[in-house]
Simulated scan of single mutants.
Amino acid sequence: MKTYVLKREQSIPISIDQAWDFFSSPLNLAKITPNDISFVVTSDYTETTRIYAGMIITYKISPLAGFKMNWMTEITHVDDKKYFVDEQRFGPYALWHHQHHFKIIEGGVHMTDLLHYAIPYGVMGRLANTVFVKSKVEQIFDYRIKAIEDLFGKL
């Protein structure tokens, strides 16, 4: 199984408390995901729900126009105001391990997303990654950077 890595970093001018409060709410993920993915959290959470190790989050997504699917992740690790990890339990990937790191810096918070993912189906999966999956994943994470800057500003 071929594993791919994507890393994105950005700094925003808010406190660690504000950053953690926003990013530890499962419902806020839809606010930083491109509209064309039709991302909807289907878990029964509220705006005040915060992540914890063992938390299961379910979604409906449309990664390709007209193709809807269910996705389930588990929050496997949480170190308050430092990092958390979500891992796919059911969905389109053979592996999805997404680390979210937060570091206090002068004037705000530096965030790092580190994603390891793999596509099922062997050679066909590697071809799919080359043809469209890699660019789609990059597009989603690039969109997130812009959406986060629009919400909080940029350092």
Rank of each mutant, 00 (worst) to 15 (best):
T49Y: 03
D113S: 04
Y93C: 01
H101Y: 05
Q18C: 12
K68T: 09
I104M: 09
L29Q: 14
L27K: 09
H110E: 10
S25P: 00
V137P: 05
D36C: 00
V78A: 06
I75C: 11
S62D: 06
N70E: 12
G66D: 04
H100S: 01
T46I: 05
I105T: 11
E106N: 14
W20M: 04
K60P: 00
W20G: 08
D79F: 06
A118V: 11
K146F: 07
K68V: 08
L114R: 13
G91D: 02
S15T: 15
T58D: 15
S43Y: 06
A53M: 12
M111Q: 13
H101V: 05
F102S: 14
I14W: 06
K82N: 14
T73D: 11
I61S: 07
A65N: 05
P26C: 09
A94D: 11
E74G: 00
E74N: 02
A53H: 05
M72F: 08
Y52A: 10
F22V: 10
S15I: 02
G153I: 07
F90P: 00
A147T: 08
A118C: 03
V78Y: 00
I104A: 14
Y143R: 01
L29G: 07
R50G: 03
T46E: 07
T42M: 06
F22M: 08
H98P: 05
I75P: 11
D142M: 01
P120W: 02
L151W: 01
V85L: 14
G122R: 00
Y52G: 07
L29E: 15
W96K: 13
Y117Q: 06
I32N: 09
Y121E: 08
I105D: 02
S38C: 12
S24P: 12
H97G: 05
E138D: 08
S38P: 09
Y83S: 12
Y117K: 09
E138M: 09
F23Q: 14
T33N: 03
D142A: 14
M55G: 10
G122K: 01
A65F: 12
V109T: 13
Y52F: 14
I148V: 15
D79H: 05
Y143H: 11
Q10T: 14
K68C: 01
N28L: 01
T130I: 11
E47W: 00
H110G: 08
L127F: 06
E47L: 04
E9K: 15
Y121C: 04
Y52M: 11
H97F: 13
D80E: 13
Y93W: 08
T58R: 12
I119D: 01
G66V: 01
P63W: 03
N28C: 09
Q99E: 15
I16L: 15
S24V: 07
W96V: 01
P26W: 08
I104S: 15
L127W: 12
K134G: 12
E87A: 10
T76Y: 02
Y52H: 15
S43T: 07
H77C: 12
T76A: 10
E138A: 12
R144L: 13
N28Y: 02
F39A: 00
P34A: 06
L64W: 10
E47N: 08
H110S: 15
S43A: 03
A30C: 12
S15D: 07
N70M: 04
G153Y: 03
Y45N: 05
G66M: 00
R8G: 01
I145L: 15
L64K: 07
F132T: 03
R50P: 04
I75M: 11
K154I: 10
A30S: 14
